[in-house]
Amino acid sequence: MNRREFLKNSITVIAGLAVPLSALEFINPKELLADKPGGEKVRWIFLVDTQKCVGCGLCVMACKAENELPYDADVSRTWVERYVVTRDGNTLIDSPKEGRDGYTSQKITMGDGTSRNVRPEDIEKAFFVPKLCNQCENPACVQVCPLGATYQTQDGVVLVDRKMCMGCGYCIMACPYAARFFHPVYRTAEKCTFCYHRITKGMKTACVDACSFDARRIGNLRDPNDPVTKTIMSGRIGVLREEYGTKPQVYYLGLSREVK
């Protein structure tokens, strides 16, 4: 290879690497807001305010009853995580029973079955983070389904067809947010549907109705007058695991870097 060839090849490689830079743009709610001609008028989105959440777990309780999940099974479509960051730099995270019974004790359950008590003066910050399916615009779980059993509706909700699902679990592995699990009764993949039976009737999701503190809100991104859309367009919002490129549509206020 002579010098001319080497330079030519280098330029080609650099030009090639520069092209996918546009693919590095992760979160852009405006792109979804745009009303495409002949497109759907609804795109469901969710807003979680972690500053307001008090960890009562009533959302988890309501979700389980509303969506017919066995109450005592250790799975839930939505859950609440507790984060306790200590002054010496440790982050302790727990979610006993998915937060179903709320957080009534300062004891933090550890993975090995023990619990740890952090003295109040050792706490740097502590807060609760409600989580649920992010109803991604590019859902990784849907791409991996070999059967067409999971799919995205026109209004942006990812659903599972229990008749088609054979329970291979690819989608459960593919979800970066661990939002999917096996239904203990049907033995098929299960996930949050944004209470599709409620939102399509003009109601709010069961968790939003159960929340007394306005920590959870549901909205329509295609409606510019929707208060949730306004907050997302103008507020300081974040999403979880943006770097996966799934374009999650559950937005968070008051996220901390400890939250993953």
Binding site: C53, C56, V84, D101, A126
Partner: peptide
Amino acid sequence: RCHAFLPYPSSG
């Protein structure tokens, strides 16, 4: 669920 006191400064 709400009224057990927790000393969490950055939470409601």
